[in-house]
Each structure stands twice: as structure tokens, then as C-alpha cells.
Design a protein around this nucleic acid. Structure first.
Lengths: 253, 253
DNA sequence: ATGTCTAATATTGTCAGGCAATCTTTGCGG
DNA sequence: CCGCAAAGATTGCCTGACAATATTAGACAT
């Protein structure tokens, strides 16, 4: 909690230099507060079950209460925290059933997106996917888990963009945010990095052949493996928490 | 806009009288503001494209700006409105592709939920589903579109509850909210009411037989019909808007 | 020692007022 | 008509305050 640092005054406006069309997208303070808290949650600096006290958060983030409350609304909408009126917020915990359901839903959404991608993707879309895959290979060969994470994000963005499934993209992104703690932890294990490489190879080959059925099947196979890895991590975390709880009798009671 | 009325002072706390376990669930003002605005949007009193001005809304709703802003965050998270920093909010419009995607995603989530329901549902779950279906039949025979709407909501709640698909339920509910304008409009048409009855019959029969595959197939068939009805409504709305726009040259420009 | 009740404390929900930042509109001059 | 500056409108954010609600601490009885 002490590690939630004050925010830097980064320049807010960004311009789309890649085309003649200039769009300005300023970043509000509430968005930055949201991002800071989200990061603290996925990095487990605010672990599941932590009670969030507004006044304390305001002090540590250096922002006013209304701004914080709007950011908490955003976290709540993504189910990263749970709020009960008049009682406050706690960081949400994932149950086993949640993890299973998240990965099943991802399969249900990503599978059809693969089929559409194989049909609809432009050459630019295909190039974006290949670039993301190249980044993934590079990151995996270096066991750079942050790099893997970023490359996967880029990969999925290319997939959903090239298949014109914007709503699915939002939903999958939101589900990924919920499972992000476990995803980061499993990606951080060396042998999982190598597995991911193996799992993405057939996805990409099928995409290039524009074979939607094969791409879908490979994507789903990858998700099954990712689900198993996440469930394993969840077991480990739950065992840690049980050990942790027995060392401090009834303190969290 | 003038029709967004001041809120009544309904008692906030409700207790679960049905069991020995008493849970108190107070309803906050921001939740009530959210609900009021959501209702105004789905009833088209705040039509797509409407600019939402905070000060005006505060005046009409009789609430303070921070409370309104928190409610707007909720509407934003459900994509009912779109906000651009420093420019404000507009009520979101649905495009054809959105409608297609929403129904495809629903099929991808409700199909597997049907399979699980057939496997997992308790006798109580099954009874809840049958009760909802009975209400649906009653409402449809009376061409009571509000009643149909409520019965369908209860039906889906029973389905997701009995299949232990809580996350899918949240996602589907959110998608339904986005499409609610079109759904209400199509349900309001008499011949669509009768079709819905016909479409739900095989779903319910399959559920009773615990035949998951048949239930899934019937559910998906219903969704295909609902999609077609919603797309037809969208065309009608868009034609109205085009006619509307040509009667007022460049006023909304 | 345990249980119950009341008062004190902490926290959330909401309001009011203010000002800075940003965007949009209006008016004037070339 | 176009460009620019000023005025006006609106959003973003802060501060301070108070009501409502939940939790905790302390006192008292058993």
C-alpha cells in the first residue's frame, strides 16, 4: 500500500501521427488513478480481500475524494473490486469457477473471431498479427515475461481488429484484466514461456493459410493450456493464503 | 429531456424475508440516478446522439454533480453513453455490426449455458425456469410487451443461475442493456410476441428432458430470430432518423 | 470471563461552492 | 468569406462540510 506512489505529471495529449487525421485524446486524472490502482491490484500490491479506504487512498495518491471515487467506479465495473453501499470496497478475489468460466468464455469469443479473421483480414491486419507474433517469439526466447505479456496483448488486438469484433475485444480485455494476476504469474514461469511459443505457432500458420477452422482449434488449444496454468497458479496462491492465515490466527476474521 | 422527473423518496433498505438470513441492501442515490437515466435512454426519451450536459441533468434530477458523475461512469461502463474528456457525453448509437455482434456473442454464451443447465440444474432451478416460462406465455397471450420483457429476464436469470454461469450472466445482461431499445421495440410488435412463444416452447421442452444439445439449438434458433427482428427495427429507426434529419437541414450538424 | 448495550469513532454518501482547463461560439477586422 | 481573439459554456478537479451508516470501544450486568 505504501508503494502506491504519487503520480508523475506526464504530458496528457497524444496525437495520431500515423495518418493525416489528428485525434487528440487527453488523459484525465481519474483515468490515471484507475490505472495506478489497477496496476497495484494485478501486481498483488493490493492483494485480494484488501479493504480500500478512500481517505487513505486519497492521501497516498495525492488526489481528491471525488476523483478517486470515479476511478473506483471504473474498477468496480470491471469487477476488480467489490463495493457494498456504506461499507466500502474490497479487492476482489477470483474463485476456481471464475477462472474456468473466464477461459471458457474467451474460447467462445476468440474461436469465432479466428474464423472471421481468416476470412476478413486485410494484408495490413495479417502483417500486424505477424509482427506481434515476432515480438512474442523474441520475448519468449529471452524469458522476458513482460515482453510476452505485451506481445500477446498486441496479438489479440490484431486478431479482434482484423475480424471486426470490437465488442468481443472489449469483453475479452475485461476478462483478461480480471485474470491478469494469474496470467502474469503463469507467464513468469520459464517452462510456460516455451509452451506458449509452441501453442502460438499453429495459430499463426493457420492464419497465414487463412484456414479459419484450424486457427480456431489451435487458439482453443492454447486457451485450454492457459486455463490449466492459471488454475494451477490459483491453487498455489490459495495454499499460500491458507498458510498465511494459519500463521496469524483470526486476524483477518 | 423534460420528462426526466425528480426522484421519489422510496425507502432504500430491503430485507430478505424469505430466509432466516437477513441481508440489507441499501440503494444509493447514484444507483437511482443511473437507473433513471438508463430508463430514459432505453425508452428513447434520451435518443442516440443526445448531448448530456451535467448541469442540466443535475437540475432536472435534483442531485449534485458528483453523484451524477458517478452514475454517468456506470452508464459509460455499459457503453450506453460515450464520453470524451473535456467534451462531455453523448447517448451511444448502435450500428448494424454492433447488433450482429451482440446476438452472436449471446449465442456463444447462452448455448453452453443451456448445455450446463441441462446437466447441472437442481429441481428448484428447473422450477424457476418453468415459472418464468409460464409468465412468458401469459404475457404473450395478452400481448403485454412489458410482461414479456420481465418474464424473459426472469427466464435468463434462471438459466444462468441453474448453469452456474455468473460471469456469462453479467456479460449477457450488459449486452442486453445495450440492445434494449431495439429489443423493446421488436417485442412490442404483436406478431413478434407470438413468434417468441413458438421459439421458447422447444427450449423449455428440451430443458425438461435435460437434453442439452437440443436446448442449445433451440436457444440459438430463438436468438437468430431475435437478431433479425432487432436488425429490422434498427433499419426502421435509421430510416426515421434520415427522414427526421432531412426535415431539419443542418440543425444537428 | 462473557454477553449486552450505549456512546464514540470511522467511513461512506452526498451536497455546495469554487476555480482551472478545455472546448465552442460569437463578434470584429481584414 | 476567412482568421483571430474574446466571451461564454462545460468539464475536470479540489475543498470543506454534514448526514447516514457501520464498526469499535468501553461500561455494566451476570
Amino acid at each position: 500500500m505504501n508503494e502506491v506512489s504519487h503520480m508523475t505529471t506526464v504530458a496528457a495529449a497524444t496525437a495520431d501521427i500515423g495518418s493525416l487525421f489528428v485525434t487528440r485524446q487527453s488523459v484525465t486524472l481519474r483515468q490515471r488513478v484507475y490505472e495506478k490502482l489497477r496496476q497495484a491490484i494485478v501486481e498483488r500490491r493490493l492483494p485480494p480481500g484488501t479493504k480500500l479506504v478512500e481517505r487513505d487512498l486519497c492521501e497516498q495518491l495525492g488526489v481528491s475524494r471525488p476523483s478517486l471515487r470515479e476511478a473506483l467506479r471504473h474498477l468496480e465495473s470491471e469487477k476488480l473490486i467489490e463495493m457494498v453501499p456504506h461499507k466500502g470496497s474490497v479487492v476482489a478475489a477470483l474463485k476456481q469457477r471464475d477462472v474456468c468460466e473466464i477461459y471458457d468464455i474467451r474460447a467462445a469469443l476468440e474461436g469465432p473471431a479466428c474464423e472471421r479473421f481468416a476470412q476478413l483480414a486485410s494484408e495490413d491486419d495479417m502483417a500486424s498479427l505477424m509482427q506481434a507474433h515476432a515480438q512474442l517469439c523474441k520475448a519468449a526466447s529471452q524469458s522476458d515475461s513482460d515482453g510476452i505479456f505485451r506481445a500477446k496483448t498486441a496479438f489479440y488486438q490484431a486478431l479482434f481488429s482484423g475480424s471486426d469484433c470490437a465488442i468481443s475485444q472489449v469483453l475479452v480485455s475485461s476478462l483478461n484484466t480480471r485474470a491478469e494476476v494469474l496470467r502474469r504469474m503463469s507467464i513468469a514461469r520459464k517452462h510456460r514461456c516455451l509452451q506458449i511459443l509452441t501453442e502460438f505457432e499453429p495459430i499463426v500458420e493457420a492464419a497465414q493459410k487463412r484456414d479459419g477452422a484450424a486457427m480456431k482449434a489451435s487458439c482453443i488449444a492454447h486457451l485450454e493450456a492457459a486455463k490449466a496454468a492459471a488454475l494451477e497458479q490459483l491453487s498455489i496462491v490459495e495454499r499460500e493464503n491458507t498458510a498465511h492465515d494459519s500463521k496469524r490466527p483470526n486476524k483477518s476474521g
